[in-house]
Design a binder for these strands. Structure first.
Length: 560
RNA sequence: GCUCCUGUGGCGCAACUUGGAUAGCGCAACAGCAUCCUAAGCUGAAGGCUGAGGGUUCGAAUCCCUCCAGGAGCGCCA
């Protein structure tokens, strides 16, 4: 908002589009305008242009001074005016501070997590789950109407494989006792045996064909597999605080694949090749396969059917898929087909990076190399519990807070880096609670909350009307400016589908707060006006941390 | 073979979309900070030819080309 006013003031003297920069060092100013591009037109040196501009420009509101430094015109905001503004805003808007209505109620459907029934959720699922959850929260906060979709992998040849494995090697007892574990072992065994005997894949296809033809035995097995696995998934989602509006997965889609395929054929887009039904797409060497030579459907046809279903039932304007980048080609082709069929909504594939195993390469479930999500979560919670016992043994609600801290570490560790990049699984790093981590930010928040709570005993509470001009320490000024930048961090994350932009902002914010915390004691301050001003700044900072963490799916307990 | 992604201090990353001032942060290692709001913290010093080479530009980690290295994908898995 300050930026716009500066640009307006510059426009009076500068032709063309104006872009402001943020100087590398806050000492140089809050915003800068570089004069290089003007040099050619005006035939003066950038340094000269800058110093002339600095004198000519009329100071916009909240700008304290304008200074030319070399070829740059630097603008300094008045921290007391900005401070008065943002502190009043935060204390008034509270949990809504930073929210906006840029979405204008537009319907955005986000598909994420989407685990496979019959296999445990492994660590790889975590990325999509955490990123999708954060994006959902960010979209909601910016005024979108968000629908969260969990497209369960509950159909496909893999079920044929499971059925073959279960009927040949399975045990009813084990399925009752530890369904997911048993199915996982069977799946690994199947893939292991398949290496020696490739014909097993044909048996799997046969079983899947049975399932598609409503064979009673196959259906019964499928139901058992699905219900028992889903129950475990729901328990996990509840633990990490992730919710969905729909669990309609591939099996649901399978009901309408025929209609979808018919539509494609009506538009004369499909052809038979080597017994399979395919669509040749312009610009793609490989076709998209809708039906295999044994007549069973493919994931592509189910995805297409799902799009049609969602267009009709959800009426979304934007459909976002948070799915690993290994499926990038599939989604490009799927979207291309959707366009050919006349669907012109926004389709976006947020291609998240993969977790790679420490020896490089994918962590494959098929080969049994997967690391289970629940094991890691439990390890994290135990560690948090241990640390709480050491550092804060009298804490109330230890168990709940240990959970929040463990999950905060997990979520933040994933969200702080660019989600499109691969990550090498490193348990030591995930288990770290110091430095650029979730617990660091949670701890920072708890410190702020603790001051506010302690202030009550002095009968003080944060108010909007404080003398912000007293907040003159560099760390106070920095904090004020960071609070005012909160919404642009949220916007950046929104526009680029990258939650790490918000996470990185929060790290910077946490550092700034801790510096302030050490440099500027609040409750022991003798000047009462300054004490009140700091108290308001602390509460505003606390609120920013709480809101920012919440948008990433992380709780902010007042004590830890 | 073809396509896409990645390469930044010992390690893990940010900045690349939109080129701009001294390339930021954490971990590890080093030196400090407890009469005072939670030391899961803070301060200081140290650590860089941004994979290599060329090009565009007043200016390149950022844009373009070539090469090298790693990863992913490329019709009957999803």
């Amino acid at each position: 908002m300050y930026e716009d006013k500066i640009i307006a003031a510059l426009k009076v003297h500068v032709p063309g589009e104006i872009k402001l920069e943020i100087p590398p060092d806050p000492k140089l100013g809050d915003f800068a305008f570089a004069c290089f591009s003007l040099a050619k037109e005006v035939k003066k040196s950038p340094v000269q242009i800058a110093s002339e501009l600095a004198q000519k420009i009329k100071k916009p509101v909240s700008v304290e001074k304008i200074v030319a430094t070399g070829p740059y015109v630097n603008f300094f905001l008045s921290s007391s005016e900005v401070g008065a503004q943002v502190i009043a805003d935060v204390l008034a808007q509270k949990k809504k501070f930073g929210s906006s209505n840029v979405g204008n109620g537009k319907k955005v459907a986000i598909e994420f997590s989407s685990p496979n029934i019959g296999k445990p959720m492994h660590f790889g699922h975590l990325r999509g789950t955490i990123i999708g959850n954060a994006l959902s929260l960010i979209y909601e906060f910016t005024g979108h109407n968000v629908i969260r979709l969990n497209y369960l992998g509950d159909w496909g040849t893999q079920f044929g494989a499971l059925m073959y494995a279960y009927t040949n090697w399975g045990s009813e007892k084990l399925l009752k006792k530890e369904p997911v574990k048993h199915l996982y072992e069977l799946y690994v065994k199947f893939n292991d045996q398949k290496k020696k005997n490739p014909a097993l894949q044909d048996f799997a296809r046969e079983w899947f064909s049975k399932l598609e033809n409503n064979d009673k035995h196959a259906l019964k097995l499928w139901k058992e597999f699905k219900e028992s696995t889903l129950k475990e998934f729901l328990r996990l989602y509840k633990l990490i605080g992730v919710t969905f509006d729909s669990f309609n997965g591939e099996a649901h889609a399978a009901k309408s694949t025929d209609a979808a395929i018919e539509l494609v054929q009506k538009k004369k887009l499909a052809e038979i090749d080597q017994g399979a039904l395919i669509v040749r797409l312009p610009n793609y060497e490989m076709p998209l396969m809708l039906r295999k030579s044994d007549e069973s459907t493919t994931y592509a046809s189910r995805d297409m059917a799902t799009i049609i279903d969602r267009v009709e039932k959800i009426k979304f304007e934007t459909l976002i898929y948070v799915v690993g980048h290994e499926q990038a080609l599939h989604f490009q082709q799927l979207f291309a087909l959707a366009h050919l069929l006349g669907y012109h909504q926004n389709f976006i594939h947020v291609a998240n990076g993969l977790y790679l195993s420490p020896d490089g390469g994918k962590m494959s479930t098929r080969e049994g190399k997967a690391i289970f999500m629940e094991d890691v979560i439990n390890e994290l919670i135990e560690l948090a519990q241990k640390i709480i016992n050491e550092k804060n043994p009298d804490l109330r609600n230890k168990k709940k807070i240990a959970q929040q801290v463990g999950i905060g570490a997990l979520f933040f560790g994933d969200l702080m880096n660019d989600c499109s990049k691969d990550v090498v699984f490193d348990i030591q790093r995930i288990l770290s609670f110091e430095g650029d981590t979730g617990p660091y930010l949670m701890y920072t928040h708890a410190r702020a909350a603790s001051i506010i709570d302690n202030a009550k005993s002095q009968k003080l509470k944060p108010t909007k009307k404080v003398k912000t001009e007293l907040l003159a320490h560099p760390s106070e000024i920095r904090l004020i400016k960071l609070i005012s930048a909160f919404s642009s961090a949220i916007n950046g994350a929104l526009l680029q589908y990258k939650p790490h932009i918000l996470a990185q902002y929060l790290i910077e914010f946490g550092r700034a707060f801790n510096e302030f915390y050490h440099a500027c004691p609040c409750l022991s301050e003798e000047n009462k006006e300054l004490k009140l001003a700091r108290l308001a700044l602390i509460e505003a900072s606390r609120q920013v941390l709480e809101n920012g963490l919440r948008l990433l799916g992380i709780s902010a307990p007042r004590e830890m």
